[in-house]
Design a protein around this nucleic acid. Structure first.
Length: 739
RNA sequence: GGGCGUUUAGCUCAGUGGUAGAGCGUCACAUUGACAUUGUGAAGGUCGCAGGUUCAAUCCCUGCAACGCCCACCA
């Protein structure tokens, strides 16, 4: 029973009221006299849903041949807490999931969390640092223990928040990407790729975060604008290069020019002396050089620039490492050893200036790459890493979308998808952090220097095939977090579920992880399961501040959806989000929350009115025959027809992912046609003895159908009202069938 | 350098080849009435700018501008 509710309350007689005539003995609405109070009922309703077991498709009272409808939840990071993006994303998912459950499908919404390697390690390291502990002091094993502790304590928070939002995911199947069964699939995938010859080890210049001390893939980089200089440095009378990074010249092993650049063709094959170090380096010709930029001559530092590394490979240039993995100058940097690279830059410029070699300094706006997790600058650094060849996998992913086996909505997002896959480079999948899936690779201890003395296997071989004596040692690297999340649609399922609940139907997410995650799930599904993991990808808008700025916790521009849930209830938060989510990016507007609040009030009061009119013994839903269409008044006819049109339209909208449109249509119907129009008209009809029974039936009919149609959007208030309807069974609106 | 998106009422946004719409806000009136978290009504828009197609353009085409986002191995 709701607070403020009064089961025995009697409606006061009202002599001035026409429609109340003859109804003095009617009971007050079972919804009581008070306003709707979401805070008082939402948690209770949610737990009755959970207790019912109907979030689990295996418990649904579906027809034998009911088709499965599966949605894989985009994995929130264990470090995360609910933000507006999650609220939008998960409300959309919940709408589709609740809708299809009501349409009789066997619905599974699979939830889980991602171990989020770098992000989580970063958070826990920060926690430890507060206690004055560095991860190196306590060592790998102990550190990982700490992360697990942290995960146990905080990792479930976001899932709790999703419950508060009303998400009807099957929590009994919740997976964490480092659960043993999941880890098994990750290992298998690694070994599978290795056996196919697509996964290989290489020593290359890769993107390296100097703070996290690990490699990163290109999708894990972010960019920051920086004002720097383009220094023109004269190496000799004939050779002047332009660079933004003078300190790396200490590691130069060539000068490159475009082969068609007539100015410099005669220099190709000659040598030049590198200032400061005095080393002689060759001048080579390479197509990658743009003759129009700078002087048309480029210093080549294969160890500290990804493009230069490739030039180096083509011309078999040596690599000289002058900056280490922590961003400090190495022994190779001579006098600059031990300096931070930024300081070395200043020192090198100073020295070159002294030597009169700086011939020009131009201010140069530049974009530098930074780590997407910690924001530290990226230092390209050579290291031994594992790479996944993307040629075949990218083809699988492209074909799936070209053939429309996977449809991306809106279609324009196909372009960035194809652009990325079409120009893809091999994926650096190894990371030098501790928190994550350790790669299933074992090295021979006795031939530690031999890059080829390893075995790829699920467990350490009993006997080392390389030396025959050692116990092999597992490689220290872990996998890129996205390597494991790419497997989510099947690795998140038990073996028997893989048969029943793969593939899914629609993946709903924001555009920022289209390639990082969605593309990788598509080819992983195709490679390992033989089918794409879903038929549709829905990319929704991004929620920004009202000023059009990105919502970000660190900038203090974020708005916490929990605030609205706590203050006005989940339905209002969901309403506000969906109301605004028309497809474009959203500039968050508080007035949508106001609208939602007013709307819940409207629904509650309309229901109160209808329930106050029904007679003893009346039952929901109304039998079709009771509607007596023959005798419909124009108002009756209008509302019944509108409702039936609305129902079709909302169903269509949900199936085509037009959630905002659906909600607005419902809003217009319910508020204006039903409340402003029919409810008012009904008052006169109820006062007339011949019209009253039919009118009551229509009121009941419209209320019932409205609850059904609105439930996917605003599940709590609709369930709260449904609960009070006199009806034959005690079933939940959650599984009421939308017919 | 390339691509994409947006530009409509005071604010946030829908929308359509033929009198321009919503939410919120504003103003007036209504108050024992399911609901004042309300009702009725009103004010408020050369639909970014310039061309073009058309009988007709806010909508289609071209160009421009502003804002935003993404991609790129021009150092």
């Amino acid at each position: 029973m709701l607070p403020g509710q009064n089961k025995v309350g009697i409606v006061e007689t009202n002599k001035h009221s026409l429609y109340m005539k003859g109804m003095e003995t009617k009971k007050q609405s079972v919804l009581g006299a008070g306003a709707y109070e979401p805070k008082a009922v939402e948690q209770g309703i949610y737990s009755s849903w959970e207790k019912s077991g109907y979030f689990n498709p295996d418990n649904l009272p579906t027809e034998k041949d009911a088709k499965a409808y599966v949605v894989y939840m985009p994995l929130p990071n264990v470090t995360g807490s609910l933000h507006m993006g999650h609220a939008l994303d998960n409300t959309f998912q919940d709408i589709t999931v609740r809708y299809h459950r009501m349409r009789g499908r066997k619905v599974l919404w699979l939830p889980g969390t991602d171990h989020a390697g770098i992000a989580t390690q970063y958070v826990v390291e920060k926690e430890l640092r507060k206690q004055g502990i560095s991860r190196f002091e306590i060592g790998r094993e102990k550190f990982i223990e700490k992360v697990w502790e942290w995960k146990t304590e905080y990792g479930g928070r976001i899932l709790e928040q999703l419950r508060r939002l009303g998400c009807s995911a099957d929590w009994s199947r919740t997976r964490f990407t480092m659960d043993p069964a999941y880890a098994k699939d990750v290992q298998k995938a690694f070994i599978h790729y290795y056996e196919r010859g697509w996964l290989y080890r290489g020593y290359r210049t890769v993107n390296w975060c100097t703070r996290c001390a690990t490699s990163l893939s290109e999708l894990e980089l972010e960019y920051k604008d920086e004002e720097t200089n383009l220094w023109h440095i004269k190496y000799s009378d004939e050779v002047t290069v332009a660079t933004t990074r003078p300190e790396t010249m200490l590691g130069d092993t060539a000068i490159a020019v475009n082969p068609h650049d007539e100015r410099y063709q005669k220099l190709v094959g000659k040598k030049v002396t590198l200032p400061i170090t005095g080393r002689e380096i060759p001048i080579v010709a390479d197509e990658a050089i743009d003759p129009k930029f700078g002087t048309g001559m480029v210093k080549v530092t294969p160890a500290h620039d990804v493009l230069d590394f490739e030039i180096g490979e083509r011309h078999k240039l040596p690599m000289i490492v002058v900056i280490d993995g922590r961003g400090k100058m190495t022994k190779e940097a001579g006098a600059y050893e031990g300096m931070k690279s930024a300081d070395a830059r200043a020192a090198v410029v100073e020295e070159l200036t002294k030597q009169g070699r700086i011939v020009k300094v131009e201010p140069y706006p530049h974009r530098v790459s930074v780590c997407y997790r910690c924001g530290s600058s990226i230092e390209p650094t050579p290291s031994a890493q594992w790479f996944l060849s993307m040629r075949e996998l990218a083809k699988l992913a492209m074909d799936a979308v070209h053939s429309k086996k996977v449809a991306i909505h809106p279609e324009r997002f196909e372009k960035p998808y194809f652009d990325w896959l079409g120009n893809i480079r091999d994926w650096t999948v190894s990371r030098q952090i501790w928190w994550g899936h350790r790669i299933p690779v074992y090295f021979c201890k006795n031939k530690a220097d031999d890059e080829k003395s390893f075995v790829v296997a699920e467990t350490a071989p009993k006997k080392c095939p390389h030396c025959g004596t050692c116990e092999m040692e597992q490689a220290p690297d872990v996998l890129d977090t996205w390597f494991s999340s790419a497997l989510w649609p099947f690795a998140g399922l038990s073996e028997s579920d893989k048969e029943k609940y793969y593939p899914g139907h629609t993946l709903i997410t924001a555009r920022d992880i289209l390639n990082l995650w969605v593309a990788r799930m598509i080819y992983s599904g195709l490679e390992f399961m033989g089918t794409a993991p879903f038929k549709n990808v829905l990319i929704h808008g991004t929620i920004m501040t009202k000023e059009g700025k990105r919502m970000s916790k660190s900038l203090g521009t974020g708005i916490d959806p929990m605030k609205y849930i706590e203050e006005y209830g989940a339905d209002v938060a969901r309403f506000a989000v969906v109301w605004q989510a028309t497809g474009q990016d959203i500039r968050w507007d508080e007035t949508a929350v106001v609208g939602g609040r007013k709307f819940t009030n409207k629904i509650w009061n309309a229901a109160k009115f209808v329930l106050g009119q029904i007679e003893e013994g009346a039952m929901f839903p109304v039998a079709a025959g009771a509607l007596d269409a023959e005798r419909f008044s124009p108002a009756d006819k209008a509302v019944v027809e509108s409702l039936s049109k609305l129902k079709k339209s909302v169903a269509h909208d949900i199936e085509t992912f037009e959630f905002a449109k659906a909600l607005r249509e419902f809003y217009d119907f319910f508020w204006h046609e039903f409340c402003d129009g029919y409810l008012e008209a009904s008052k006169a009809q109820l006062a007339n003895i011949t019209d009253a029974p039919r009118t009551r039936a229509i009121l009941m009919h419209v209320l019932y159908e409205s609850l059904v149609v609105l439930h996917p959007f605003m599940p709590f208030i609709t369930e709260a009202i449904f609960d009070k309807l006199p009806k034959k069974t005690n079933a939940l609106l959650l599984i009421e069938q939308w017919k």
